[in-house]
C-alpha cells in the first residue's frame, strides 16, 4: 500500500511538471513573435476589452496557431507511442511507417477533387492514415513481422503514397496551392476554422488512447500472452491502430507532414515515466504539445519577421536530439539496459 502511495505521488508530480511545461510553452508562444505582446495585453485581449492591433494579432494569429501546435504535437506523439507499442517496434512512428504520407496523400487528393470542402480534409486524412497503417501491419504480418521488415514495409508504403502526392501536384499544379510548405509541415496561416473539426477528432482520440492504455500494455506483451489473459487481441489492435490513425490523420490535415515528433517524444516520455502507458500516454500528449509549440516559437522568432517552416525546425532540433539519445545508451543493445 505504501509503495503504491509513493508511486501515485510520483505520478502526480510527473503529470504536474509536464502540464506546466505545456502551459509555459503555450503562454510563450502567444506572447512571442514578430510583434511581442505583453502578458497584460494578453489578458485584456482575452477578456475582449480591447481592440488594439496586438489584440487582433493574438486572437486571429497567435491563439489559433498555438492551439494548432498543441493539438498536433499531442496527437502525433500519442499516435507514435501507440504505433510503437502495437507493432512492438521502437523505430515505428507515424512518419517512418508511412502513416503521415497516407494522410497527406488523401488530404491532397481531397483538396484536388473537392477544393471547397475543407471540412472533409480531416476525415480524408484519417482514412489515408488508417489505410497506410493497416497496409503496413498486414504486409509485416504476412512476412513474419520482424522489426526491420516492418520499417521496410512502411518505407515502401510511404514512398508509394509520396509518389501519389507528387503525381497529383505535377498533373494539377494549380489545384493544391502551398504544396511545398504542406510537405515540409507547418502551421503558418492557420485559423480556428482550419482547426475544425480536426480538434474534436484529436480530443476524442486522446481520450480513447488514455482509456485503452492498460489494454495497450497487455497487447504489447505479445498476442499469445494477451489472448491467455482473455483479451481479444485482434479487436484491441484494430481499435488502437484506428485511434492512432485518427490522431495522426487529424494532425496532418492542418499541420502538414511534420515528422519525428512521433518518434522523439514517445522515447523521452517512456524514459521519464519508466512505466506503463496509463502514465506514459498522458506524458506523451503533454510533452508532445510542449515540444511542437517550442519548435514553432523558434520557427517564428529566429529570423523574425521571416518564418522558417516548422517541419524544418523539428528536424533540426529533433534529429540531433534523437541521435544523442541513441548514443547515450553506449554499448547496450536496444532495451538491454535499465
Amino acid at each position: 500500500m505504501k509503495c503504491s502511495m509513493r508511486s501515485s505521488t510520483r505520478t502526480a508530480k510527473i503529470l504536474a511538471i509536464c502540464f506546466l511545461c505545456m502551459a509555459a510553452s503555450a503562454v510563450l508562444a502567444v506572447c512571442l513573435g514578430a510583434v511581442p505582446v505583453s502578458p497584460g495585453e494578453l489578458i485584456s485581449a482575452l477578456a475582449g476589452s480591447s481592440d488594439t492591433a496586438a489584440a487582433r494579432i493574438l486572437l486571429h494569429v497567435r491563439l489559433p496557431r498555438t492551439a494548432g501546435t498543441l493539438l498536433a504535437g499531442a496527437a502525433l506523439s500519442v499516435a507514435g507511442r501507440i504505433i510503437q507499442c502495437v507493432l512492438g517496434n521502437p523505430l515505428a512512428s507515424p512518419n517512418i511507417i508511412g502513416v503521415n504520407a497516407g494522410a497527406g496523400f488523401f488530404t491532397v487528393l481531397c483538396i484536388a477533387l473537392f477544393p471547397y470542402d475543407t471540412a472533409l480534409q480531416p476525415f480524408a486524412a484519417f482514412l489515408g492514415a488508417l489505410a497506410a497503417v493497416m497496409a503496413v501491419y498486414f504486409i509485416a504480418r504476412k512476412t513474419g513481422a520482424s522489426r526491420i521488415t516492418l520499417v521496410l514495409a512502411g518505407i515502401a508504403v510511404g514512398s508509394l503514397l509520396n509518389a501519389g502526392i507528387d503525381t497529383i501536384t505535377v498533373f494539377m499544379p494549380n489545384s493544391v496551392p502551398g504544396i511545398t510548405s504542406y510537405k515540409i509541415g507547418g502551421l503558418a496561416g492557420v485559423t480556428f476554422g482550419k482547426l475544425s473539426p480536426a480538434w474534436i477528432i484529436i480530443l476524442v482520440g486522446l481520450l480513447a488512447a488514455i482509456l485503452l492504455s492498460r489494454d495497450l500494455d497487455v497487447l504489447s506483451l505479445g498476442d499469445t500472452t494477451a489472448k491467455s489473459l482473455g483479451m481479444n487481441a485482434e479487436l484491441t489492435r484494430f481499435l488502437l491502430l484506428t485511434t492512432a490513425a485518427a490522431l495522426a490523420g487529424a494532425a496532418v490535415s492542418f499541420a502538414g507532414l511534420i515528422g519525428f515528433v512521433g518518434l522523439i517524444v514517445p522515447h523521452c516520455a517512456a524514459k521519464i515515466t519508466g512505466s506503463g502507458n496509463s502514465l506514459t500516454l498522458p506524458v506523451c500528449a503533454l510533452l508532445g504539445a510542449a515540444f511542437l509549440t517550442v519548435c514553432d516559437i523558434v520557427a517564428r522568432t529566429l529570423f523574425a519577421p521571416f518564418e522558417i517552416p516548422l517541419g524544418i525546425i523539428v528536424s533540426y532540433i529533433g534529429v540531433p536530439f534523437f541521435i544523442y539519445l541513441v548514443l547515450r545508451k553506449k554499448g547496450g543493445r536496444h532495451g538491454d539496459r535499465t
Binding site: R214, D217, V218, L221, G222, T224, T225, S228, L229, G230, M231, A270, G274, S275, G276, G335
Partner: peptide, 21 residues
Amino acid sequence: PQSGAGGDITVRALVSHGRFP
C-alpha cells in the same frame, strides 16, 4: 508461452498484468 514478454517494463508492472482478466 515459450518466449516473449520482457523488455522495458518493471517486474511489478509485468506481474500486475496477470490481473487483467
